[in-house]
């Protein structure tokens, strides 16, 4: 991993270094997030992509230290935000960051909103939690924010409870809560996954506009490569607790370096694949207690050779802002040798 430039002007807004999450279970300790390093620069959208169980959501939760026991962030991990080490902050200082400088949007607006408070009150609550303003002023700002996120009749909607709002409306309220204090960073965990495609389209447009207009940065966690292509400037792909590839969005889709990324892109049904057998990634994502010690993708990889089973690949720098955790970066000639992976099993 290359060290980032340290001058203030180019320093990333958020820098994760070697973040590890351990969970003690009845059957032993697992490390579902294992040495993740990521930069989110000012004004950029970084997408964190991966399948269920890859550790992407857990990584997002480490940023605001929302993990709960038995999950623990290991010593040696570092999360710097606006020059401050978040992992060193006490609870009080952390609260000042949460919601104000860094805001989160969750997948399920129905469970993330409190059912006993009105939409307006929940937006106003965030304002009052961080700023000394009157109840009335907070509510005025809440209503204005609801209007900004495209809620019609914001004054009326502000008095309604979450169950009186549609899924799309609820997600807009979540967005209003997140944006009302103008955070520098928005962490959005599958913000549109629960929504229908036409409503998702509305929300994605709104998210992009809000992020651009405010110059905020966004860490967008998603499994949907379509959403990635529409929203992100850079992409980090996670597999089995590690970042396996990092690239500008155009390069990633045009020529993925890591075989896992390549497999994901190939497995998507699309206009060109009609009625043909889809490419698949054989086998299934192994559980954390069964992660291979060398390359974690080797068993499912169509290029794997001896080295992949004995030596864990580092996140190689491939130039042009691209990195991949794969020996192919050093031995590109091996790409010609495509064969059936070791795991012939099924998911």
């Amino acid at each position: 991993m290359t060290a980032p430039p340290t001058s203030a002007a180019t320093a990333p807004l958020l820098a994760l270094r070697d973040v590890r999450v351990r969970i003690r279970t009845a059957r032993g300790t697992i490390t579902p997030v294992d040495g993740v390093s990521l930069d989110v620069h000012r004004g950029e959208v970084l997408a964190l992509v991966g399948e269920s169980g890859c550790g992407k959501s857990l990584t997002a939760l480490t940023i605001l230290r929302l993990l709960e026991p038995p999950a623990r962030i290991e010593a040696g991990s570092s999360i710097r935000f606006e020059g401050t080490e978040l992992l060193a902050l006490d609870e009080r200082a952390l609260r000042a960051v949460r919601g104000r400088r860094i805001a989160m949007v969750f997948q399920e607006p129905m469970t993330a909103l409190n059912p006993v408070h009105t939409a307006g009150a929940q937006v106003a609550e965030v304002v009052r939690a961080h700023e000394r303003v009157s109840r009335r002023e907070a509510m005025d700002r809440a209503v204005a924010m609801l209007a900004t996120v495209g809620i019609p009749d914001p004054a009326v909607r502000a008095t309604q409870y979450p169950h009186e709002l549609s899924g799309g409306m609820r997600q807009r309220v979540m967005l209003a809560i997140a944006l009302v204090l103008d955070p520098a960073l928005l962490v959005a965990d599958e913000p549109t996954t629960a929504l229908d495609v036409t409503i998702q389209a509305q929300l994605l447009d709104l998210l992009r506009e809000a992020q651009r207009a405010r110059g905020a940065s966004m860490l967008l966690i998603t499994h949907d490569l379509g959403v990635v292509a529409e929203m992100a400037q850079r992409v980090a792909v996670m597999y089995a607790g590690q970042v396996v590839e990092e690239a500008p969005v155009g390069a990633l889709f045009a020529a993925p370096l890591h075989p896992y990324t390549e497999g994901l892109l190939a497995a998507m049904p699309r206009a060109g694949t009609v009625r043909r057998e889809l490419a698949t990634i054989p086998g299934t994502v192994p559980p954390p207690e069964a992660w291979p010690t060398a390359c974690r993708f080797a068993d499912r990889c169509p290029y794997a050779w001896q080295r992949c089973r004995t030596e864990a690949p580092p996140l190689h720098d491939a130039g042009d802002g691209r990195r991949a955790r794969c020996h192919l970066v050093e031995e590109p000639a091996r790409r010609a040798d495509r064969h059936a992976p070791a795991a012939a099993g099924t998911a």
Binding site: I23, S57, L61, L66, A71, A112, N114, I177
Partner: peptide, 11 residues
Amino acid sequence: MTTSVTPLGDV
């Protein structure tokens, strides 16, 4: 920010 999501989604 009010959060009431189970934080161990992936685990």
